[in-house]
């Protein structure tokens, strides 16, 4: 069977697109690894209109609840691996199956950027983590390293300096970025060693992380740490979409109607080159993409 629309992703963009698609009575399918996307990972949200304050998980739950008020055909826990157009039909391959549709909305979001150094994969969740909010409390009394120099790295360092014995902040640029107020707090703390112009070369340990090796001014130094928090930004989940135009960061280029360069393929949210990555913007872009797909379907009938 050929769907009218397949939505890939169920973060704010994908879920909003599905609500709009359901209300337009489009015959559609949602394929997603998870529900909520980065919103489910977020701490406090204070800038989603209508909620003065809500936590990320609660807002995700609200999104999901809204989507499920409609009979949405959802394939959860499925990862899209390929999109190709054959004889005017778009085929979406996943790790569990293949589906065909007249239109697709790619709303697959972003994921944490990895360091790409030896030891990183082996020690993931064995002392090395990409979610400081989740795992920081497990490192009380331990020496830890935070990698990065932006707001998320500063935020992780601030959480950790309350509990860790020492925090190394390893920043690749010559000075810390992020908000001044957070930078000052980190710099004032006697527990944090800021290492600017430095980068990680390897992670080592036995069963769990024991050390990190850092290169600074051409010299390598090994620091004894039991925790490593990687906070070096995000990359778009766009690798599985071949043939669409992307910018240098790998974000899918869309026009004002969320169209990509391939007819029938739309994109929305953080996976696109739309400026400002915000929950409310992703949601709005999801709505636009669904309406764009609806218009496209009507015109091609």
């Amino acid at each position: 069977m050929t769907y009218d629309l397949i939505i890939i992703g169920a973060g704010p963009a994908g879920i909003t697109a599905s609500v709009y698609a359901a209300r337009k009575r489009i015959n559609f399918l949602v394929v997603s690894m998870d529900i909520g996307g980065q919103t489910a990972w977020s701490g406090d949200v204070e800038n989603y209109t209508g909620y003065q304050f809500i936590t990320g998980p609660d807002l995700s739950a609200k999104f999901e609840e809204h989507m499920r008020t409609y009979k949405v055909n959802l394939k959860e826990g499925e990862k899209a691996t390929k999109i190709e157009v054959r004889e005017g039909v778009i085929h979406v391959r996943t790790d569990k199956g293949e589906y065909a549709a007249k239109t697709v909305i790619v709303a697959s979001g972003k994921k944490s950027r990895e360091l790409g150094v030896p030891g990183e994969r082996e020690y993931k969740n064995k002392g090395l983590t990409y979610c400081a909010t989740c795992d920081a409390p497990l490192f009380s009394g331990k020496a830890v390293a935070v990698i990065g120099g932006g707001n998320s790295a500063l935020d992780a360092a601030l959480q950790l300096l309350k509990i860790a014995s020492h925090v190394y902040l390893i920043n690749i640029t010559p000075s810390l970025g992020g908000d001044a107020i957070m930078r000052e707090k980190v710099q004032k703390s006697g527990l944090v060693t800021v290492m600017n112009s430095s980068f990680v070369t390897s992670v080592a340990g036995d069963k769990m992380v024991k050390a990190i090796t850092v290169k600074m001014a051409g010299k390598e130094e090994t620091l004894a740490v039991e925790g490593i928090f990687v906070e070096i930004g995000l990359i778009p989940n766009s690798g599985f979409v071949k043939g669409v135009d992307k910018n240098a960061a790998g974000e899918i280029k869309v026009d004002a109607y969320n169209r990509t360069n391939i007819p029938g393929i739309f994109a929305a949210g953080d996976v696109t080159d739309v400026p400002e990555k915000q929950i409310i913007i992703a949601a709005g872009e999801g709505a636009k993409a669904a309406l764009g797909a609806f218009r496209y379907l009507n015109q091609s009938r």
Partner: peptide, 10 residues
Amino acid sequence: STPTCPFCIR
């Protein structure tokens, strides 16, 4: 779990 972990809450 930890109180701050979104996936724990979910």
